[in-house]
Simulated assay, not measured.
Amino acid sequence: MFGRVRAWGSRHRNLIDGLAIAPLVILCAMAIPAYVESPPPGGRPPGVWGYVLLSAALVIPLAWRRARPVQMFAVVALVCFCQWLLGIQPVPANIAVLVAMYGVAARCALRWAVAAGAVVELGLILALIRWDVAVEPLAIFSGTFFVLSPWIAGIYANTRRRYLESLEERAERAERERDQQALIATAAERARIARELHDVVAHNVSVMIVQADGAGYAMSSDPEQARQALGTISRTGREALAEMRRLVGMLRQDGQAEEYAPQPGVAQLDDLVTQVRRSGMAVEFTVGGTPIDLPEGEQLVIYRVVQEALTNTLKHGGPGAVARVDMTYRGREVLLQVTDDGRGAAAPPGIGGHGLIGMRERVAMYDGSVRAAPIPGGGFQVSVRLPVSRAA
């Protein structure tokens, strides 16, 4: 709610500035009858219209205290000085000089704040002398305290505002750097995969296609040549498989031996959920709709998304977190939703992880969409929409 009020105030700065000086205007208006009937002793009374004009000259410049604080203070101080030269009695609107000083202290550099405070302090001493007030240390001390209070408040507001601005700037810079790191990681991953796939697959598959075409033509006329072509296809396929295994081995970081097993799919989700439950986290798994046969690639995507989401819950959900996996077959698409009631936005950010990036890249290969964000009130949710390919 505070954020909405602040945003509204940013859009209507002029209105806020006008409302801020409204109490001073009301005070000046209410003081007119009492001021006319019994003006304060000393000095020359300005009269009704003089009172109104003097009050307007002091109050109206305050509307620009945010846009032009130094110029506004100069105008108000000049009006007060002219009032002192003409010997006109003080009016309630003279409080505007303190408001103007506060505006300079809250909006400008320290040197301008010090200059404004010195001018007001000098004006206080001149006023004490002008109105035949005994210039005693107690009077000067009390008047100085009356001047320093808004001046110190303005300095504090200025410091606080600059601190908040620096925090916002650091947050924006960190967000930009995070987005840049994500883009760099995505581009590097794509470039590396493209290079490896081209080097490993393109040549061998091209040879296999040529040999398969030749075997098809020579099948009836020259069986021996056809057998040689099939042997070349078999040998080239084994070489391609060995190169792909080498690529997978390069991607591994734990140094463990490779296991050449079929890629997991939808059928292995129950085993995955059971494995997570054994680790101590409660998981609910439901399947809705009419199941259909999905291509192995899309099944692998679904499995990896669930695996990554549950892994993130284990890492960041906190103790006692409960996860729920909902998989729904709906027409020509599969909807997947992994929700937990963990710490959500309060969880500390991971360092160097690209799990969500890899998740989006996998789903994007099949023209799907991913939404991963904290849930209001606590928890985290990963929602995936995966269109069913024509091969299904």
Rank of each mutant, 00 (worst) to 15 (best):
M1I: 07
G9L: 00
R11E: 03
I21K: 04
E37C: 01
E37A: 11
P39V: 15
G43L: 07
A57N: 00
W64Q: 11
A74T: 09
V75W: 01
A77I: 04
A77F: 06
W84V: 15
G87R: 15
P90A: 15
P92C: 15
P92F: 15
I95L: 13
A105Y: 10
V120F: 08
G123E: 04
L128C: 00
I129Y: 02
I129G: 06
R130V: 08
W131C: 08
V135M: 11
P137T: 13
L138P: 00
F141C: 14
T144E: 03
S149M: 14
W151V: 10
I152R: 02
N158F: 07
A171T: 11
E172W: 04
E172C: 09
E172Q: 12
E175R: 08
I184V: 15
A187W: 05
R192F: 01
L197E: 08
D199Y: 06
A202N: 15
A202Q: 14
S206G: 13
E224F: 01
A229H: 05
A229Y: 07
G231M: 02
R238A: 05
R238M: 04
E239D: 14
A242Q: 09
E243P: 00
E243T: 01
R246A: 09
L247V: 03
G249S: 09
R252K: 13
G255R: 12
E258G: 13
E259R: 08
Y260A: 12
P262V: 02
Q263E: 05
A267E: 09
D271V: 08
S279T: 13
G280K: 11
V283W: 08
V287Q: 02
V287K: 04
G289S: 00
T290M: 02
I292H: 06
E296H: 13
E298F: 00
V306C: 13
E308M: 01
L310Q: 02
T313M: 12
G317V: 03
V325W: 00
R332W: 01
L335K: 01
D340R: 15
A345P: 05
I351C: 07
G352K: 13
H354T: 15
G355N: 10
I357G: 07
I357W: 03
I357F: 04
G358N: 12
E361Y: 02
E361T: 05
V363C: 03
V363K: 04
A364E: 10
M365N: 11
Y366A: 04
A372S: 04
G378F: 05
G379Q: 00
L386H: 04
P387M: 11
P387Y: 10
V388W: 11
R390I: 06
